[in-house]
């Protein structure tokens, strides 16, 4: 099938028109969150670490503290804005690292085959069977608190998900006639893999990557909640929820609810987009077959 440029543009415009409202809302929300995180020093009304014990647990609507203050008097809105930085950046790091690991492992397993495939697949099975949070906690215990260790541990833990998908798609693509044609034409294995195989598995990776982002965000928030993530007084949503526990007992739940909602809505938004991307890929696949 051959399509002209105007025809391609028309198809793209049709797809945009058919993009559901939920996807557009999710994308807008993520843009706003990422934007406020990025511009927090310009937009935030206070410094994220400025405490004021006399203003502790001020309720939402207090002048100067529109989302209230936490148990040490820090502005909740400011900390949620600053918290977006680490809360989004760390999961992104997990996704990128796990993608690099997973793609490499999956492609090597699929292209090498035989014993290499068997060994790599069993390795992926072993890592797959290990709970990601537990691995991250062990990493913190060994390397000390902070985000670097859990990000690396989660990346290792997530890598088999992408690795398995990449291996599976690569095996399917590798069996197709066009791959054989390239080999017959004398192109090298690496060139064929990078130039032709990888682009074909990329859409699946993007869909899985978006979903992984949501998982990573929740896992990292859980670690921060347990006091194993960011170092105080840095703000991130998980640690904010953790620090709000006593405030909730005192009938002042806002310092936990606001970052809790931020986690919830971000994960929902990422999932909505991820599922849409996944659906579009499978739809396009059907369309093109």
């Amino acid at each position: 099938m051959t399509l002209t440029v105007p025809a391609l543009r028309a198809r793209a415009a049709r797809r945009r028109r058919h993009r559901p409202l939920s996807v557009r809302l999710a994308a807008a929300f993520l843009l706003v969150v990422a934007g406020t995180g990025l511009l927090a020093p310009l937009l935030a009304p206070h410094s994220p670490d400025t405490t004021s014990l006399v203003n502790a647990l001020a309720p939402p609507g207090t002048p100067g503290h529109w989302l209230g203050t936490d148990s040490t008097g820090r502005d909740v809105l400011t900390r949620v804005m600053y918290g977006a930085r680490l809360s989004l950046l760390a999961p992104l790091g997990v996704v990128l690292l796990s993608a690099a690991l997973g793609i490499t492992t999956g492609l090597v397993a699929a292209r090498a085959g035989g014993r290499v495939d068997a060994v790599l697949s069993r390795c992926m099975d072993i890592v797959f069977a290990f709970p990601s949070l537990l691995l991250a906690m062990i990493a913190v215990a060994v390397f000390g608190p902070g985000l670097a260790a859990p990000v690396c541990a989660l990346a290792v833990s997530y890598a088999p998900f992408l690795g398995r998908i990449v291996r599976s798609v690569a095996l399917q693509e590798g069996a197709r006639p066009y791959m054989e044609a390239y080999r017959v034409m004398g192109f090298g294995e690496l060139w064929v893999t990078l130039r032709h195989l990888l682009p074909n598995v990329a859409p699946v990776l993007i869909a899985q990557g978006t979903l992984s982002f949501g998982y990573a965000l929740v896992d990292l928030a859980s670690l921060s909640y347990l006091g194993l993530g960011v170092r105080p007084p840095d703000a991130d949503w998980g640690s904010m929820i953790s620090q709000a526990q006593s405030a909730i007992l005192q009938g002042a739940p806002w310092s936990g609810i606001v970052p809790g909602l931020a986690v919830l809505l971000t994960v929902v938004s990422v999932n909505v987009i991820g599922e849409h991307v996944g659906g579009s890929i499978s739809g396009r696949g059907k369309e093109e077959t």
């Binding site: 309720p59 939402p60 609507g61 909730i248 009938g251 002042a252 739940p253 806002w254």
Partner: peptide, 13 residues
């Protein structure tokens, strides 16, 4: 929220 009594929490604090 329900456990903490959101509606009256602000007043309590």
């Amino acid at each position: 929220c329900a456990l903490a009594g959101c509606s009256s929490g602000g007043e309590q604090a």
